[in-house]
Amino acid sequence: MSARSADSPRRFALDRLKTPIGIALLVTDVDGVLRALDWEDYEHRMRELLRLHYGAVDLRTQQAPAAMRTALSGYFDGDLVQLEAIAWRVAGTPFQRKVWTALAKIPAGATMSYGALAARLDMPKAVRAVGHANGSNPISVVLPCHRLIGADGSLVKYGGGLERKRWLLRHEGVEV
């Protein structure tokens, strides 16, 4: 039996990191693994996603591991492969986890349509489900939901706003 009862809140650490596109919120677990990354102006949505995935959550202000902060800062400074060094863990449904894991395999500087990702998952008719899972991604930037675009190459939906999506893609060398 777990030492934590089902009713006690899950404890996570919350840190804030200044980036060129706003203050990033970093949520880590007791092992220092990233559980959420969102933007300060979307903190309410991040907290709701955490609640949906983990139930009651207790966020305590605490600095994220130095290596994680360094990797994120490195990414924003132009060393795009730094994201690969960040350990992450997600909850969600098996389908959501499948989509989020696939997002992590889209390399910096590349984009993919929702339909192409659905096809890559051997579920070509699941385009809308892929879009919904992408929109529920709790770990922005590291699980690069910004790399998904419309079938016609247009920028569509990004939880952090289209201007951030445009900046992230340009930062990675994608002309949009």
Rank of each mutant, 00 (worst) to 15 (best):
M46D: 05
M46A: 14
M46N: 03
M46E: 06
R47M: 12
R47D: 07
E48T: 06
L49N: 01
L50V: 04
L50K: 01
R51I: 03
R51S: 12
R51T: 13
L52D: 06
H53L: 02
H53V: 00
H53C: 01
H53P: 00
Y54F: 15
Y54K: 04
Y54D: 14
G55K: 08
G55F: 09
G55Y: 08
A56F: 02
A56G: 09
V57I: 07
V57R: 02
L59P: 09
L59A: 12
R60T: 07
T61M: 10
Q62P: 00
Q62A: 13
Q63L: 06
A64R: 03
A64F: 05
A64T: 04
P65I: 09
P65L: 03
A66H: 11
A66F: 05
A67K: 13
M68Q: 12
M68I: 14
R69N: 07
R69C: 08
R69Y: 05
A71S: 15
A71R: 04
A71N: 05
A71H: 06
L72W: 04
L72T: 08
L72G: 04
L72A: 08
S73I: 09
G74F: 01
G74V: 02
G74C: 05
F76D: 07
D77T: 10
D79V: 12
D79H: 14
L80Y: 08
L80K: 12
L80N: 07
L80F: 08
V81I: 13
V81A: 15
V81Q: 14
V81N: 12
Q82E: 14
L83T: 10
L83N: 03
E84I: 04
E84Q: 12
A85R: 14
A85S: 14
I86V: 15
A87P: 05
A87C: 10
A87F: 01
A87I: 06
A87R: 15
W88I: 13
W88M: 09
W88E: 04
R89M: 13
R89P: 01
R89Q: 15
V90G: 00
V90R: 08
V90K: 00
V90A: 09
A91I: 00
A91C: 07
G92S: 04
T93Y: 02
T93F: 02
T93W: 01
P94S: 10
P94E: 06
F95H: 10
F95D: 06
Q96N: 10
Q96M: 09
R97C: 12
K98N: 08
K98M: 12
K98L: 11
V99D: 02
V99E: 03
V99L: 05
W100K: 04
W100P: 01
T101N: 12
A102I: 05
A102E: 11
A102W: 05
A102V: 06
L103S: 01
L103R: 00
A104Q: 00
A104W: 00
A104I: 00
K105Q: 13
K105N: 08
K105R: 13
I106N: 03
P107W: 06
P107K: 11
A108K: 03
A108S: 13
A108D: 06
A110N: 15
A110H: 15
T111G: 01
T111S: 08
M112T: 09
M112K: 11
S113D: 10
G115T: 15
G115E: 15
A116G: 07
L117T: 06
L117W: 07
A118Y: 03
A118D: 03
A119K: 11
A119F: 04
R120L: 12
